[in-house]
């Protein structure tokens, strides 16, 4: 059972964008950082566990070249590497990387802006840290840009471009499990619903490709060799990461799923959708057959709110937070 805890107020409301909440629990302080996108700005808030004493910071999308309208930020997410934590923003103009508290921008990568504007929108979207020293970011043309990040300093370089997707990247994630079985390190998803599973060694190589079935895959997670994917038809699908085999389908939500999250220590899965529900699930492997299993644990309705972001706030999944379109707060729930 989860019970509502004190909300964290935001300086501005959240936009309807996939995975529009990032949560970073600080290791050395009893504080949690939150980030959510509002149009061309990102609202950062740091809050103590009791939800009191909140401090705020606003970040702006960088404008590259002559702007016809304010560049919209598509996602903001913390990337936790062993050596450092960076806050990454993606927008219509490019990719911005900041120190974790948003104080200093350490890297800027501009996207090519075409004139006159093409019918196809141009933006970056989908952010994940991978294999110790990489940050991977997707683009609207289906590319996955791999940045090599040094343990300190600003000498970040574009080391590789992965070209397997034909549609806009929606989300990118890397293995979060403690005991990953298999070689899958990175998972990328696109607008058509296609998924690519990658292994990271010196270079990234394609392990398997899971084909689309007509619905956008808006959010993905990878846990101990299990893929969890959320789709526009409200379905969650579980796949074997190494083979791409379908292991479960869940009619989870009545409307478009906007966010999934996984608690690495317990295998709890969270899904948030436009139907105003957060659902909590539990993943496991049957010790006898090795089959992937999923059970439903909890339903939470955030009344009259189309959810756009939802995250666990701790590695066990004992608490979670969610954002909604037009809502100027982060709602929080804790286990009782």
């Amino acid at each position: 059972m989860y019970r509502k805890a004190r909300s964290v107020p935001l300086k501005s409301s959240s936009s309807a964008l996939y995975n529009n909440l990032s949560v970073l629990p600080l290791r050395d302080k009893p504080l949690t950082y939150f980030a959510a996108v509002h149009g061309s700005t990102v609202s950062l808030a740091s809050a103590a566990a009791d939800g009191l004493s909140v401090s705020h910071r606003q970040l702006q999308a960088k404008e590259g070249g002559p702007a016809v309208s304010a560049s919209i930020v598509t996602q903001a997410s913390w990337c936790v590497l062993p050596s450092r934590v960076l806050l990454v923003l993606t927008s219509q103009k490019g990719i911005q990387m900041y120190e974790s508290d948003g104080s200093i921008m350490v890297y800027w990568h501009a996207l090519d802006v075409l004139e006159p504007p093409p019918a196809q929108a141009v933006f970056a979207r989908g952010i994940a840290a991978a294999s110790g020293r990489f940050i991977c970011v997707g683009t609207s043309s289906g590319l996955v840009l791999v940045f090599d990040v040094p343990s300190k300093g600003t000498n970040i370089t574009l080391s590789e471009v992965l070209e397997e997707h034909h549609d806009s990247i929606t989300d990118i994630t890397s293995e979060v499990g403690e005991n990953p079985n298999g070689a899958a390190d990175l998972l990328t998803a696109d607008d058509s619903g296609a998924l690519c599973v990658w292994r990271a060694k010196e270079e990234f190589s394609l392990l398997t490709k899971i084909s689309a079935f007509g619905w956008t895959c808006s959010s993905v997670k990878l846990w101990n060799g299990v893929i969890a994917a959320g789709y526009g038809n409200g379905q969650i699908r579980l796949y074997e990461a190494t083979s791409g085999a379908l292991r479960a389908t869940v009619s989870a939500h009545a409307r478009w799923i906007y966010a999934l999250d996984l608690a690495p220590l317990t295998g709890k899965l969270l899904s948030g959708a436009e139907d105003s529900y957060v659902q909590i699930w539990k993943l496991s492997r049957n010790p006898d057959t090795g089959d992937i299993e999923i059970e439903h644990c909890h339903s939470e309705c955030v009344t009259d709110t189309q959810l756009c972001g939802a995250r666990f706030c701790d590695p066990e999944g004992n608490s979670f937070a969610a954002t909604g379109y037009d809502l100027s707060e982060i709602v929080r729930y804790g286990q009782v």
Partner: peptide
């Protein structure tokens, strides 16, 4: 689909 079914 109407939510409520898990298939494994």
């Amino acid at each position: 689909e109407v939510p409520g079914l898990i298939r494994m």
